Amino acid sequence: MTPEWVINFGQHALYVAMLVAAPMLLTGLLVGLLVGIIQAATQIHEMTLSFIPKLLAMAVVGLLLGPWMLHTLMQFTHDIIVGLPGAIK
């Protein structure tokens, strides 16, 4: 394994991790922001009011984008397994 291969692998792994995690994280961020604005406007500060909508929204995003996330991770794993014999010299 050359240092270039290891660096390229690390960069690709971080890119795939960000790509797969981004939909869920952005959904939680946007729903949390909306709920926070509503809580500030109504002066109702209950912890479960922010947790339940985030949980539901992230579950919906997980159901909708789950197959794409799984395919992305499987493609990354496949690329690693196929490229591994060429990396070990």
Rank of each mutant, 00 (worst) to 15 (best):
81 I>P: 00
40 A>K: 15
77 T>C: 06
17 A>G: 11
29 L>R: 04
50 S>F: 11
20 V>W: 01
18 M>V: 14
64 L>V: 07
9 F>G: 04
85 P>K: 10
65 L>P: 06
40 A>V: 01
66 G>M: 06
83 G>W: 06
72 T>F: 02
81 I>C: 10
66 G>W: 06
3 P>E: 15
3 P>S: 15
59 A>N: 01
66 G>R: 07
52 I>E: 04
70 L>H: 02
24 M>I: 12
32 G>Y: 03
63 L>G: 15
7 I>H: 08
72 T>R: 06
10 G>P: 05
70 L>V: 08
67 P>N: 06
79 D>F: 01
56 L>N: 09
67 P>K: 02
65 L>R: 09
45 H>S: 09
23 P>M: 03
29 L>S: 01
75 Q>F: 08
71 H>G: 06
62 G>R: 03
35 V>M: 09
67 P>L: 02
47 M>V: 13
7 I>M: 13
26 L>D: 10
39 Q>D: 05
88 I>H: 09
30 L>C: 12
56 L>V: 15
1 M>W: 03
13 A>N: 09
49 L>D: 08
80 I>S: 02
62 G>C: 02
83 G>I: 06
22 A>H: 10
44 I>H: 13
82 V>T: 13
89 K>S: 10
28 G>N: 01
54 K>F: 02
36 G>K: 08
56 L>R: 06
54 K>S: 12
53 P>N: 05
63 L>Q: 12
27 T>L: 05
63 L>H: 12
29 L>E: 00
46 E>A: 10
52 I>N: 00
6 V>A: 14
63 L>W: 14
41 A>Y: 10
59 A>L: 12
80 I>Q: 04
64 L>T: 00
11 Q>D: 08
38 I>H: 05
52 I>G: 01
82 V>C: 04
63 L>R: 14
28 G>F: 01
48 T>Q: 01
